[in-house]
Write a protein that binds this DNA or RNA. Structure first.
Lengths: 157, 157
DNA sequence: TCGATACAGTACTAAGATGGTACTGTTTCG
DNA sequence: CGAAACAGTACCATCTTAGTACTGTATCGA
């Protein structure tokens, strides 16, 4: 199914919470209790946000996480990348750990350009929503730029 | 991971193939061979497209599927709905077979409106791409309408 | 009439992803 | 020095996915 995983949900909520309390040191427990989420799950996603460079961490008693950047400089695409790692809606361009393409017929595939065009068009939508939009609670409706697929080369079959 | 499932990929390719051969009766085998895909998998998604009303089926010798509608009247959202069933990027509003909400704290959830706003904004992007766009190989870049979340009510936490 | 073709519907299984948790280690405060 | 809180890793039950198999039905043509 095409859906944002539950842990990614948690991560978006945590990011918004921290952005709304910018500059304040906030413990994972506080965020988990606010949203009625399991604490271990929230700590997991906060580690990912820290690893992605979105938030700073503070250990020890009274520690927690802080966000002090520009909410409008962070896109929904960035956030999902931090939480899920590199992602594509299609796997035409995906490679496994050995560097082999997941798609065995990749080079000869008549649909590769086509699928990659969809990928870029939809991922582009995720780049138009910023953390600031989420914090403000107003979110833009993505508009598709119909030149995206064509610019990837000739049309696919 | 946030990705279109492989079978849905197959379904999109099959829909494009049929739209490019509009009015012609095309067997599942022909589509599978063109894209180098397993025949049983392609027949599976074609059944879904037929069930969704996108294509007509013709049994017997020389049978197959035909598309004879308006490619620009079918959106990417419609196609995914046919192939994956009702879908949402978040599960705030999802109910199980017994009619119970998947989210146990749904009524009191401080993030429900927020997540549903994301859901509508991104799903809106899928409504801006049509089967005609896919057939022509030019695809729009979705543009987010930032009023979508706000219009769901007050801003969520 | 009969056989081959092709779709209709259902069900099964192996492989992979997901969600939640547990455990150990490290840092910081008082 | 003890408690609090993050860092990193690993585990496991559950769910989803992909692919296939099997039976049934409709159609064409010899």
């Amino acid at each position: 199914m095409l859906k944002i995983s539950r842990l990614t949900d948690y991560g978006l909520l945590a990011a918004v919470y921290l952005a709304r309390h910018a500059g304040q040191v906030t413990a994972a427990r506080e965020i988990a209790e606010f949203y009625h989420l399991p604490v271990p799950a929230v700590t997991k996603v906060l580690k990912a946000l820290h690893h992605g460079g979105l938030v700073h961490s503070h250990r020890g008693v009274g520690g927690g996480y802080t966000f002090d950047g520009d909410p409008d400089g962070i896109t929904l695409g960035h956030l999902i990348e931090m939480l899920e790692g590199p992602w594509d809606l299609v796997e035409c361009e995906t490679f496994d750990d050995d560097g082999h393409a997941t798609c065995a017929i990749r080079v000869a595939c008549p649909s590769r350009r086509f699928m990659f065009g969809i990928n870029r068009a939809i991922k582009g939508a995720f780049e138009q929503v910023t953390l600031g939009d989420l914090v403000r609670g107003g979110m833009p409706q993505p508009v598709i730029d119909k030149t995206q697929l064509a610019s990837s080369g000739e049309a696919a079959q």
